[in-house]
């Protein structure tokens, strides 16, 4: 490979890194939000982002189940993966 070709590759990489800094690109592993949810006190909630947000509040959870007094929230692995991918600070 010629040095000039290396430079073209580095230039392309540089552009991708600049764009990713401000507008993160997703290349793989996207978990789709549809059909994801959680169970809150035995009731199903279909808003997975709400589930992620609520789970993020808990200091610790076990196997996808978080308990705080009368408040019990549980999520399946798919929803947990979605939350983690989206950057929610879920503890599990």
């Amino acid at each position: 490979m010629k040095l000039r070709d290396v430079n073209y590759i580095l230039l392309f990489l540089g552009i991708v890194l600049v764009v990713n800094l401000f507008y993160p690109l997703s290349f793989s592993g996207n978990v789709v939000a549809e059909n994801l949810g959680c169970e809150v006190n035995g009731n199903y909630v279909s808003d997975v982002n709400l589930c992620c947000s609520e789970m993020s509040k808990f200091l610790s959870c076990e196997d996808g189940v978080c308990v705080n007094g009368d408040y019990v929230i549980s999520v399946e692995e798919d929803a947990l993966d979605y939350c983690k991918e989206r950057g929610y600070n879920v503890r599990y």
Binding site: N7, L10, G14, L17, V18, L21
Partner: peptide, 27 residues
């Protein structure tokens, strides 16, 4: 031309390294 190309390569390597650090530590 080779010297200039090498200089460009070194320059791009430095820039890409810095951008890589920035991406890993977006703060």
């Amino acid at each position: 031309l080779d010297i200039e190309t090498k200089q460009i390569t070194i320059f791009l390597l430095v820039i890409v390294s810095l951008l890589g650090i920035a991406n890993l530590n977006k703060d």
